[in-house]
Design a protein around this nucleic acid. Structure first.
Lengths: 186, 186
DNA sequence: GTCTATAGCTAGATAGAC
DNA sequence: GTCTATCTAGCTATAGAC
């Protein structure tokens, strides 16, 4: 039985979850190979520039996902803003697997090569803020307030994920998501 | 000129800042040796169980510092609670170097051996929450509300440190500290 | 496109001199 | 208590067969 080509989406998903869990330095090539079901050599075939390229790839994927899902939904004026808000929160819940997964944006922000990744990470934070700001504005919040509060959404979500990760208690994350609508439109 | 014994407090400080900046996996023994000004062998002389012991040591130090400074101040009823609150925020500002330093509690929560460190990390979060809860209660907030909001202090501070770290913009942290008094006693 | 095997290096950790 | 030198294991990365 010849080896089958492993689907790129499956590899991407495994790279995402492994970097999220272990961070850049903690995710060794050996671990990444086992997680994806590929050999190290096959990973280098797909990512000639190695681990750094893999991390940049998953961060680029994350930005695309946020643009195509969160931002697209959040700016779709054919939907009522209240519904968009719920959908946007649902997307965050999905991305962070209900608070059970460390946030890739945070785990890749510390350690070797972290500085190289920060522009990608900021892009993702900006997309999330952009989405929530659009919703808030359409709910009648003035633009300046909407911008401030949508940035705070990132702050609250990241803080809750730190605490959920350390305590293994997802309620920090769940409660934070639940409080966002009230906070955004207070 | 013989080699002088390096002061333990200086070593501790360097271990703290290096683990804070690079995380557990990113802080290699080579880097830790250079940061402390000791050889790797000398570090092993002081910490026979190696890097893991060093990380546990700095976390234990952090808990002692929080107890002896933040908690002690926060529970000192000879001081007006409003003053205690400002002192407690000053201590957080000092610990995190105005938002310029990654938080040790966060950087050690990801990567190899992270699970072993989480009990130490939780202890530190509990001490911070304990301090702010005591202050809030003495400012007239009921115990249950005080407990919830003091936990949120950790959430807000951690979230702001993630964003300040990624963007190199300390205002997330500074603004968060400034907002805590209003939030705690709203 | 996949793999095994391995190069070359750096990691954590240790031995033993001073 | 400090150091240099070194060990072994694991690391990133590559070579070359299929």
């Amino acid at each position: 039985m010849r080896s089958q080509k492993v689907a790129a989406e499956d590899v991407d998903q495994k790279l995402f979850s492994t970097f999220s869990e272990l961070g850049y330095d903690g995710a060794s090539m050996e671990i990444l190979a086992k997680a994806t079901g590929l050999s190290k050599a096959s990973l280098y075939h797909r990512f000639p520039d190695g681990k750094k390229q893999m991390a940049e790839h998953v961060l680029t994927n994350a930005a695309e996902f946020l643009q195509e899902n969160l931002v697209k939904t959040a700016t779709d004026r054919s939907i009522k803003p209240e519904i968009r808000l719920q959908k946007a929160l649902g997307i965050l819940d999905q991305v962070y697997e209900g608070g059970s997964l460390n946030c890739l944006l945070r785990t890749l922000s510390v350690g070797t090569d972290a500085e190289n990744f920060k522009s990608y990470i900021m892009k993702c934070f900006d997309l999330i803020a952009k989405g929530f700001a659009a919703i808030a504005i359409d709910m009648g919040i003035d633009a300046k307030t909407a911008k401030t509060r949508s940035k705070d959404v990132n702050l609250l979500v990241q803080g809750s994920l730190v605490l959920s990760g350390v305590t293994h208690d997802r309620s920090y994350f769940k409660n934070t998501l639940a409080k966002i609508p009230g906070y955004l439109t207070a």
